[in-house]
Amino acid sequence: MDRDQVLVLNAGSSSLKYQVVGPDGSVAVKGSVDRLTGEDDHARALAKVTEDLRRAGVDDERLVAVGHRIVHGGPRLTTPTVADDDVLKAVRNAVPLAPLHNPPALAALEAAMSWLDDVPHVVVMDTGFFADLPDHAATYAIDRDLARRHDVRRYGAHGISHEYVAARAAAHLGRDDLRLVTLHLGNGASAAAIDAGRPVDTSMGLTPLEGLVMGSRAGDLDPGILVHLARHEGLGTDALEDLLHHHSGITGLTGRSDFRDLEAGLEDGDDACRLAWGVYCHRVRKYVGAYHAALGGADAVVFTAGVGENSARLRADALAGLARLGIEVDAARNEADSKAVRAISTDTSAVVVLVVPTDEELAIADATRAVLHRGAS
């Protein structure tokens, strides 16, 4: 029996998504284990994955490799790499930079390496796409020696998704020289400026906390707020980290943790939801304008991920008032129910607005195969 399938494991802070992808991109089985609350849960969740694979008739002997999404690779782990002790150490060392995401990913990786110990395991970093950001975009204006000692720079995140949708947008428009503003909008959210396939800037920073408003993360905020709260509320570093990760963003403003609940509250006239919606859209609009300028003029704006792909109202409101930048959304196209790559801008819009479904698992599978191919050549 030929080994030709890649198992992709995408461990989030509270879920473990998986797919088995064939050499032609076909998906033999996919699913997720949700509502996980600890690192041990992710290891135990693999038992459910094993059961699902066997129920679907997927034989372990068909697996050529396992690809793993790692949110943060730190300063040195930047390209897809076969996991070994040094890789595990690098992922572990980057835990302080992604405390919600790296621990469960590491737990799933170690458990999977024990379960499937006869095939290579390849890690694909969400920070990797942004490893070569221009220095002026990657550098924070703090004491340079302090920054160097602690590897402080802009690392970004969601790079797997941004790179994937940028390539699909280029294929859809038949151009490889596009200047793109890509918007990955989900529970976690980020923006990127991409010129001819290479990143120019991105909104997430040293950690996945910076940038757009998110489900429970504030995104951009004055760092003086943290000093103020530490001094006057007595909040220590652990309490501040908990605030930033779990009690900010849409959750902090409304008490609602799901974007669909936010939209429902908006429909019901809830004042807190109305304010949160305005804050969310305002932040997206600011980044679109800023990256339009950073690119010297964008050719297209691309929406992707759960919110970006599914909320027509968000897309319309976030880009409202940008006609002077050449960005105009066609209401009928925007409201159309479709899962295809599609333009939702008017025929006269100077900047094309696209909705491009992301597929991080397929991108991870492709990157995993590329690593195996390099190793065999």
Rank of each mutant, 00 (worst) to 15 (best):
A94K: 01
N102F: 03
P80D: 04
L97P: 01
L106S: 03
E110F: 10
H101T: 02
G74N: 09
D85I: 00
P96K: 04
R69A: 03
P80H: 09
N102E: 08
L88V: 08
V87Q: 01
A107M: 10
A83L: 00
V95G: 05
E110V: 14
P80I: 03
I70Q: 02
G74T: 10
P96C: 08
G73Q: 08
S114K: 15
S114F: 14
P96T: 12
V91R: 00
L100Y: 06
L77F: 04
V71Y: 12
L106T: 04
A107R: 07
L109D: 04
K89A: 14
V91Q: 05
N102R: 03
L77Y: 07
A98T: 09
P104M: 11
A94L: 01
V91K: 05
T78C: 04
T78H: 09
L77H: 00
S114N: 15
A111M: 14
P103G: 11
A108F: 13
G74L: 03
T79G: 02
A108D: 11
S114G: 15
R92K: 13
L106P: 07
P96D: 12
V82G: 09
W115A: 15
A105L: 05
T78L: 08
E110R: 15
P104S: 11
R69S: 10
L77D: 06
D85P: 03
V95Q: 13
P96H: 07
W115L: 15
E110W: 08
G73L: 11
A107N: 08
K89I: 09
A90Y: 01
P104C: 10
L100E: 01
V71T: 12
A83Y: 00
L88E: 09
A90Q: 07
D85H: 12
A105S: 10
D85V: 03
D86F: 03
R69C: 03
I70A: 05
D86V: 03
N93R: 14
D84I: 12
T81V: 05
R69Q: 12
A108K: 12
A111E: 15
A94D: 00
N102T: 07
A98I: 02
A107V: 10
A112Q: 14
P104A: 10
E110D: 13
E110M: 14
A98G: 14
S114V: 15
A107K: 05
H101Y: 07
E110L: 13
R69Y: 02
P104N: 13
R69E: 06
L97Y: 07
L109F: 00
L88K: 01
K89Q: 13
L88C: 06
R69T: 05
D85C: 02
E110P: 09
A105G: 14
L106D: 01
N102W: 04
L106C: 09
D86C: 00
N93G: 14
T78E: 04
R69F: 11
E110N: 13
P75L: 04
P104K: 07
A107F: 09
K89V: 06
P96G: 13
T81G: 10
V82S: 11
D86W: 00
K89P: 00
R69H: 08
V71S: 11
P99K: 11
W115K: 14
R69K: 09
V91H: 02
V71R: 03
P75Y: 02
A112K: 06
L77T: 09
V71P: 01
P80V: 01
P96S: 12
N102H: 12
L77K: 05
L109R: 00
T78P: 00
P99N: 11
L106V: 01
P99H: 12
A98F: 05
A90V: 01
D86S: 11
P103A: 11
L97C: 10
